[in-house]
Amino acid sequence: MSDTIQEKVTGVTLTDAAAQKARTLLEGEGRDDLALRVEVQPGGCSGLRYRLAFDDSRLPDDLVDAYDGVDLVVDRLSAPYLGGATIDFVDTIEQQGFTIDNPNAQSTCACGDSFH
């Protein structure tokens, strides 16, 4: 996990490693109108699942934090489920990709994609 983290209005923390990876992916897309959106949706084996994607839309009540060239967007319905969560990017032999550590999750499934 990265040493420097920032917590702002979304209630979600994006580590330096996650912000850097998102910025690299955005640069690869060649677009400056995309933001990293994290939301909670019904589904998965535990009842709720995360959706993390680049998005060019903004709703009037979206919460937005800027992380060194990357906007992190959370909709107001997802915010209560994500308060205190940390998004990181890991690149190890065992695992590669974005991870979400959510203290609000009472239980998670084995695949790590859904929670309750």
Rank of each mutant, 00 (worst) to 15 (best):
L36Y: 04
T10C: 14
D32M: 07
Q106F: 06
L72M: 09
R76S: 15
R58Y: 13
K8P: 00
L59V: 01
L63G: 09
D91R: 14
Q96L: 04
D32N: 14
A105I: 02
A53R: 08
T24W: 06
I93W: 07
V9S: 11
T4G: 00
P80G: 12
D3M: 09
R23V: 01
R76A: 15
G112K: 03
G43C: 01
Q20K: 15
S107T: 13
H116K: 14
R23A: 13
D3L: 14
D56T: 00
I87A: 03
S46V: 06
Y50A: 03
D65S: 14
N104G: 11
T108R: 08
C45M: 12
T24G: 08
Q20D: 09
L26V: 02
I93T: 09
V74A: 10
D55M: 01
E29Q: 14
V74H: 10
A35R: 08
D16E: 14
I5K: 12
F115G: 02
V70R: 06
L34P: 08
P60L: 09
M1W: 09
V38N: 01
V40G: 02
A66R: 15
R51L: 08
T4M: 04
S46H: 11
Q20W: 03
S57T: 11
T15M: 11
D33W: 01
Y50N: 06
N102I: 00
S114A: 14
V40L: 03
S114E: 09
E39C: 14
A66G: 08
